[in-house]
C-alpha cells in the first residue's frame, strides 16, 4: 500500500467519517507501532498494547489535522512518540536506567558473554533519546529528517543521538561476539 493509498484512506476517514478506511490504516500500521512500543518498554506487551491503542485513538481524533506533508507513518510515529513520553512523565513506569548503572554494565568486561544477545539488553545501554532514534533509524527504516520530525528535534541533534547510540551498541555487539 503506497503513500497515495494512505492519503486516500485518510481522506475517506476524515471527510466521510468512514471507520472502515481508518481500520485499513490501523491494520497496516499496528505491527510497527506495537513493535516500537515493545522495544521502548523493554518487552512489556500489555503496556505496549495500551500505548498503541492510545496512539490510534489520538490519530483518529486528530485525523483532520494531518496535512499530508509528511507521510502518514511519520505522523503516526510522532503521535506514538508523544504518547510514550507523556506516559513516561505521568506514570513514571519508565525504563529509565540509572546512568551509573548503565556505565557499570557497559564497561564491565564480558559481562554478557555466553548469554544470547538480547535486543532489550542492548537498548538499555542507550539513553532514551538515543534508543528512540536508533529504533526509528535501524528498525523502522526512518531517515534522519523523518526522525527529526517525529522527535521534534533539530537534524544535528538526531544525528548525534544516532552516532552515540551506534557507538554504544557497536561496542556492546563486538564485545559479545555478534557477527552478521
Amino acid at each position: 500500500m503506497s503513500k497515495t493509498e494512505d492519503l486516500k484512506w485518510v481522506s475517506r476517514a476524515t471527510l466521510l467519517g468512514d471507520t472502515t478506511a481508518f481500520d485499513h490504516l490501523v491494520r497496516k500500521y499496528q505491527s510497527s507501532i506495537r513493535r516500537f512500543f515493545l522495544n521502548l518498554t523493554m518487552g512489556d506487551t500489555q503496556l505496549s498494547d495500551d500505548l498503541a491503542q492510545e496512539t490510534f485513538i489520538k490519530a483518529w481524533l486528530n485525523l483532520s489535522s494531518f496535512q499530508g506533508l509528511a507521510g502518514f507513518s511519520t505522523w503516526l510515529f510522532r503521535i506514538a512518540y508523544n504518547v510514550y513520553y507523556d506516559a513516561v512523565r505521568s506514570r513514571k513506569f519508565t525504563s529509565e536506567i540509572d546512568e551509573t548503572e548503565v556505565n557499570r554494565m557497559y564497561q564491565a568486561e564480558n559481562e554478557f558473554s555466553g548469554s544470547k544477545l538480547d535486543i532489550h539488553t542492548a537498548l538499555q545501554l542507550l539513553r532514551k533519546e538515543e534508543r528512540t532514534a536508533i529504533l526509528l533509524f535501524y528498525m523502522e527504516d526512518k531517515n534522519h529528517k523523518e526522525i527529526a520530525k517525529i522527535m521534534d528535534s533539530p537534524l544535528g541533534t538526531i544525528k548525534t543521538y544516532i552516532l552515540k547510540g551506534k557507538e554504544k551498541m557497536g561496542k556492546y555487539l563486538k564485545e559479545n561476539g555478534y557477527e552478521e
Binding site: 535486543i119 542492548a122 536508533i134 535501524y138 528498525m139 551498541m169 557497536g170 555487539l173 563486538k174 552478521e180
Partner: peptide, 8 residues
C-alpha cells in the same frame, strides 16, 4: 552494517 543486521 552490524547494527542494522542485529536490528533486522
Amino acid at each position: 552494517r552490524m547494527i542494522r543486521a542485529f536490528m533486522q
